[in-house]
Design a protein around this nucleic acid. Structure first.
Lengths: 298, 298
DNA sequence: CAAATAGTGTCTTTGAGACATTATGCG
DNA sequence: CGCATAATGTCTCAAAGACACTATTTG
């Protein structure tokens, strides 16, 4: 292999030594983090259990563009690191917590998604257990807050003609934090013509959410909804010791549906969790067994 | 919103007009295409049916680095296009076929994955029906060939200690095209320490496959294996009119297992396909009904 | 008719969904 | 004791897995 020479008579080592990068345009590459947690609501009735809510961490922009609106935490990838390492770095800077579940989501590349310059966003999904979440710090410079996430399908239209099927779905994303309400609408058009499929995503409204981050958050919620059903990913949103009711609430808040207790326990409780010796107490009702994650070693 | 001014007293329009991109390093971003098809093997016995094989399109490198080895088709993303558009462009250049199933896979970003310079690869999965595949053209400059794909799990080790679980899986990828045999080994280490999970992928051997493309191809096969089970993605590998046995073979070759006919037909045949009036003929046995894709409009 | 595949019937087992019933700690 | 939740039992129904049987074409 060392002896191979190209049409200029150079070996690979010689070629690389002489290599000069061309000066064609290169994009900046940022990582944007969709950091979810599942936090308890406050419950006044001491006998009733709190409910879970899906939260996402946003940061208020202190400069242009999108000054004053809310954005996903993120930053630029540096030349000596992978996007995963950049994501890990941003994550510990932002939350102060190490060892968080991290998964690459999607690379968004619309050339005008950042009005300043050509910036691609390699987005990451991170899941953090709510007990580790530091109380939303009203830091001096950057204000970071956890927003309750709601993603609903607003409308679904299907246009069918002889050889064109068009499926238009509109999603509405609402983000709430005390008196702040942000919202965004994403329209997904799926076109099938002949043997071809085309998916188009458009942001048709973005209210207080910076860049294309409404789209990125919607995408992250959809990924979470899908993966929760066939992986143990939800266990990353729950403390080390947890009750099965808690876990069920996490599933419910992600999927947006109510689940029935008995089959949920048979399926996920038995498959993903193992009972510990501990129980809850002081609850105003029968105490509940605490479970731990069962590491799948199949 | 127009009236908001930042700490320098600028409106957003003024800020953007004055904006100068910094001169920090930017990566090149390439798209690499994993183009799969499912082609029939030759069968001498006229009564027997041909088998399907999973194929991937590779191009022999005509220059350094990795001169003479085989690489995924791909190219650089240009400033006025999305990665999807770049992928679409590469795809029609390479195969001459429009309207192909296309899906973003993963963005690989190890800083040294290209020995020349900092290049990220945004990889795409494309599925093309074998009847559209032009016979592997021995073009003048770039030699392109379809390689039969085989991905096996070679070994699986689990190290469990008190608070560290390590799962090491080794995959072996073999690519065959007549007398050419390429191979690669990818090692996946999953470490769980405390609440943290770390996934490390290493290429431990690459025989005739350029860059980190052995890893990208392995990733694509795994994605395909996963998605085939809960989507209609496999129908993109089959012509407009196809038999259910053909479709079953596609599933079998992707999953690497044999499936039982009756339940396969009940599940996928009824759900994803609709019968046409046509049948096969001249087969040396009972003719088979030809089906078409049923577009899912739920 | 023999070879080879097409296509269907049915039995078993598994598991999801739905609902009901029993258990238990706390004030 | 009564409230609220914990935990489990059981019935029904749908579907996956496995296997066998019938149907149909061509040389």
């Amino acid at each position: 292999m060392e002896e191979l020479r190209d049409k200029n008579g150079l070996t690979e080592a010689e070629y690389l030594a002489a290599y000069k990068p061309g000066d064609y345009a290169r994009p900046s590459v940022a990582v944007d983090m969709v950091i979810f947690s599942a936090a308890d609501t406050k419950e006044e009735n001491y006998r009733k259990l709190p409910q879970k809510e899906l939260k996402v961490l946003l940061i208020q922009r202190g400069g242009h563009p999108y000054l004053g609106t809310w954005a996903l935490p993120g930053g630029f990838v540096e030349p000596n690191e992978t996007t995963e390492q950049a994501a890990q770095r941003e994550l510990s800077e932002e939350t102060g917590v190490e060892n968080i579940y991290l998964e690459q989501l999607y690379t968004f590349s619309e050339p005008n998604r950042d009005p300043r310059t050509w910036v691609m966003s390699c987005s990451y999904l991170a899941l953090i257990d709510s007990s580790k979440v530091s109380v939303s710090a009203g830091d001096d410079a950057r204000r970071a807050e956890w927003f309750t996430v709601r993603l609903d399908t607003v409308s679904k239209k299907i246009n069918e003609s002889s050889d064109l099927i068009e499926k238009i779905t509109e999603y509405k994303l609402v983000l709430l934090c005390e008196d702040i309400e942000l919202s965004g609408s994403v329209k997904h058009t799926m076109k099938r013509t002949g043997a071809g499929i085309e998916n188009i995503y458009e942001i048709i409204e973005s209210n207080g959410i910076a860049f294309d981050h409404a789209r990125i958050i919607s995408y992250a919620v959809e990924r979470l909804r899908g993966k929760v059903q066939y992986t143990d990913i939800a266990l990353n949103l729950v403390p080390e010791y947890f009750t099965l009711t808690e876990l069920q609430q996490v599933y419910e808040v992600i999927l947006g549906t109510k689940l029935i207790k008995a089959p949920f326990r048979r399926k996920y409780g038995a498959m993903l969790c193992e009972p510990s010796e501990k129980t809850t107490s002081d609850a105003g009702h029968r105490p509940s067994r605490l479970y731990r994650r069962k590491w799948l070693t199949e």
